[in-house]
Design a protein around this nucleic acid. Structure first.
Lengths: 233, 233
DNA sequence: GACGTTTTAGACAATAGTGTCTAATTTTAC
DNA sequence: GTAAAATTAGACACTATTGTCTAAAACGTC
């Protein structure tokens, strides 16, 4: 812990100059350390070392440890929200090639939201510090996961008018879509492992296939079944 | 943190005498504190106070903090595994009234595995300490969630021969069943909240309905759809 | 190149936690 | 009732951490 090589963040791509670069460097390093050690396990010295910055600089920018923590959470939440809504923008707008389009969407969701650094950070920290800092994560809960359901429900509603989808409760369908998407990789994510692109692709496809089987209007089922016979896997 | 009332565990139902009672008391209190504070945030003094036991007694039973932590994890894992397999034993064995039977099974799973103290503990601690103590949770991963998929897959396979279920990949179906069951309550569990019985019941029913829609053989779909018209909700 | 700002390393006090030790007290077993 | 075992409170050394302070160095701007 003491003899850590402090070059990591110097080498990485923070080429901005001045205070701003320091802030970014501190926030990045702090996110790593908080994620790895939790709030109480993380030490300012370790963060300073990982950010290649003196301890005093951290205290110059952020009055105390808790202030830094809140800034980090805010930073990660903002990034995660941006990523989420940028992925939502890729939701298929017409019913052509529905399975493939939905699969691509689901895979994007996993890559850019569930399986990246920010997703891991939020899963961990919300779960462990969410009760201690309710106000802190409540905003995220409403803006992030709280709104993804509604947004996805609206998209499904739009889609269901074009495709032959049989959905009563769009909110429920949205939650179930997301649950199915994470079904295969839940255990890996729980253990902090990062799934490969291939794993994400197959997980996405399986999820979409099941979702469509559950929510495709009955009259289309025979066609879908026939298609499955012709193109298995 | 200092002036906590130490009566909690004296009043609760540990009527056994002697060393054993102390061990139980310590393990229970330690589980609470580790769950609430994480490994590094938990202090031995706090655990001792919550267990109504002196610090020295804890060191008599468990050599050091890490030893105690491992014992707690083992204890919770054992209980959680027992609960899990006792719920698995309630899986419906015939196809009569499938939706209701599966719903009861799913609700049992949530009540006794996902939504109780042990479930919360394991979700939190595996996620935060799983990378630091891989050997510790690996056993659980294989015996617990690792085997639930296989066990549930076998049960689904048995069931599919009696009911008209159309499942190629039983492992996948098992994972998806579990994912759907947790879909509605995921967010509450993430924030450490405890769903009510009613929430669990409706979540279970919705999950089962979707699961059955996805995996019921096409020839039965029309019948199911008609039934749905007659008995909505 | 000079000035004001930012950063740095290090010392520092204050606090909190771990794990040990001891001597007194309580509990248990016989 | 007595002896052995377990438990207790408290003191203790040791370490780690937070947050402050200082004087020197580096930096950016003009």
């Amino acid at each position: 812990m003491k003899d850590r090589i402090p070059s990591a963040r110097k080498a990485s791509g923070h080429t901005q100059r001045g205070q701003f670069a320091k802030r970014v460097s501190i926030l990045d390093a702090a996110a790593d350390v908080f994620c790895r050690e939790g709030f109480s396990g993380a030490s300012i010295d370790e963060i300073a070392m990982e950010a290649c910055v003196s301890r005093q600089t951290i205290y110059n920018h952020y009055r105390e440890k808790e202030t830094l923590f809140m800034a980090v959470v805010q930073d990660v939440m903002d990034r995660a929200n941006a990523a989420l809504f940028s992925v939502l923008a890729t939701f298929p707008s017409n019913a052509d090639d529905l399975e493939n389009e939905l699969t691509a969407f689901a895979a994007g969701l996993m890559c850019n939201c569930s399986c990246n650094h920010d997703g891991k950070f939020l899963r961990r920290l919300v779960q462990t510090e969410g009760e201690r800092y309710p106000h802190l994560f409540e905003a995220w809960r409403k803006q992030g996961p709280g709104r993804i359901d509604a947004a996805l429900a609206a998209l499904l509603s739009r889609l269901s008018r074009q495709a032959n989808l049989d959905i009563d409760d769009f909110d429920l369908a949205a939650r179930q879509f997301l649950a199915l998407v994470n079904a295969d990789l839940q255990m890996m994510l729980l253990f902090g492992e990062t799934p490969s692109d291939e794993q994400i692709q197959t997980a996405a496809r399986k999820a979409v296939q099941t979702f469509l089987r559950a929510y495709t209007r009955s009259s289309d089922k025979t066609a879908a079944a026939n298609e499955k016979q012709l193109l298995p896997g």
